[in-house]
Structure formats: C-alpha cells, structure tokens
Amino acid sequence: MLEILLDEMRGSFTNVPPAVAAARLTAALVLGGLIGIERERRGKPAGLRTHMLISVAAALFIIVSQQLGSLPFGSDGEIRIDPLRLIEAVTAGVAFLAAGIIFTSGGQVRNITTGASMWLSGAVGLACGSGQIPLAFMASVITVAIVGLVGAAERRMSKGDPEED
C-alpha cells in the first residue's frame, strides 16, 4: 500500500506530473492575481484573494479532470470523458459567485465589472490548468488593460464618479 501511495506521489499514475501541475497552478495564481489586484486597488468586494482563488480552483478542476482520465474506470468503450462538462460546471459556479456581488442600489447596477473579471479569472484558471499558459497570460493582460486603462478613461469621461465600476 505504501508503495502505491509513493508511486502516485511521484506521478507514475498521472497524466500531469506534479511539477507540471505545480507550474500550472502557480501560473493560475499569478495571472488571477494580476486581474484581482486592480479590483483590490479600487476597493471592490472581490479583489486579489478572490480572483486568485477562483483562478487556482479552475486550474485545479482541469488538472483533476486530466488525472481522472488516466484512471482505470473500465474498458475503453465505457470511459466517458467530456472536458466541456467540466468547463460548463466551472463557469456556472463562478458565474454564481459573480452574480452574488452584483447588486442594484438607487436604480444603478454595481460591481458588474468585478463580476465579469471574476468570471474571466475562472477562464484564465481553466486555460492554465489545461496547459495553455501563454493564452491565459494574453487574456490576463487584455483584462487588466480593460479594467485598468479603459476603466480610468471611463471615469475621466464621467467626471470621476468614484462609485462607478
């Protein structure tokens, strides 16, 4: 039994070696943090930690799905692995969290950009978990540019209303 556990920890039964999984999770952490730091700086309800956790969780779900695909669940004809179902589950879960921070106050919708950035952090995590780190990096840079630079331009055009998202 101990030998089996040691083999699993060494990665002999896995599709994703531990070092690769660690790199993917770390990339998700950093890139989710890039998105979250702007929200944190603006004092939004979902900031740095939330975005990091969403991104890492999404990456972990993809890595786990890849690991599950390598386990012996029966004959080849019986195994059904559908990564789209996992992606749908992650996006639905993150959308649920994001919807929880969006609210209406005084007839105005608040925190919708933060909700969208949370959803995007989930997508970044999914990309990292599947090994698409360059794609996740590009999406993160674009997101930071949108919420940071475009957001600043919008605030200037609206006379700097600090409550706008």
Rank of each mutant, 00 (worst) to 15 (best):
C128S: 07
E38N: 15
I112P: 00
E78L: 13
Q132F: 14
I79R: 13
R110L: 03
K159I: 02
I79E: 03
E164S: 11
V109N: 07
M52W: 06
G36E: 06
D161N: 15
F73N: 04
M118G: 08
I35Y: 12
G131E: 02
G160P: 00
M157K: 09
G148N: 12
P134A: 07
G36P: 06
G107Q: 02
A123S: 14
G93Q: 07
R49K: 15
A152V: 14
V90W: 05
G36H: 07
V147S: 08
R49T: 07
G74H: 04
T104D: 12
V150G: 05
I112M: 15
A95V: 00
L71W: 06
L84K: 07
D82Y: 05
F103M: 11
V90G: 09
K159G: 06
G74P: 05
A153M: 13
R42E: 14
F61W: 06
V94A: 02
V124A: 07
P45T: 00
M118D: 04
V141H: 07
I101M: 14
R80Y: 12
G131P: 13
T143C: 04
A116K: 13
V147A: 08
E164C: 01
A152W: 15
A99W: 03
G77R: 08
L126S: 10
E88G: 03
G69E: 11
G43I: 06
I146Q: 09
N111L: 01
M138R: 10
I37A: 10
L53F: 14
A95Y: 01
E163P: 00
V141R: 04
V144N: 09
F61P: 00
R155V: 00
G148Y: 15
S117I: 10
T114N: 04
M157P: 09
V109E: 10
A98I: 07
L120D: 00
A116C: 07
L135Q: 12
L60A: 15
R155K: 15
V150Q: 04
G36Y: 08
V109I: 14
P83E: 09
E154G: 10
L86W: 01
V141F: 07
A89W: 04
L126G: 08
L120N: 01
I102W: 11
L68Y: 09
A46Y: 05
A123G: 15
G151K: 04
Q108S: 06
H51R: 08
S75A: 14
S117P: 09
F61L: 12
M52P: 01
D161W: 13
G77A: 14
I102R: 13
Q67F: 02
S70T: 14
I79M: 12
I35W: 12
G74A: 12
E164R: 14
G32V: 00
E163F: 13
A57Y: 03
L135V: 15
S130C: 03
S140P: 09
G47V: 09
F61K: 00
G107P: 01
A59T: 03
L84M: 14
L48A: 05
R110H: 14
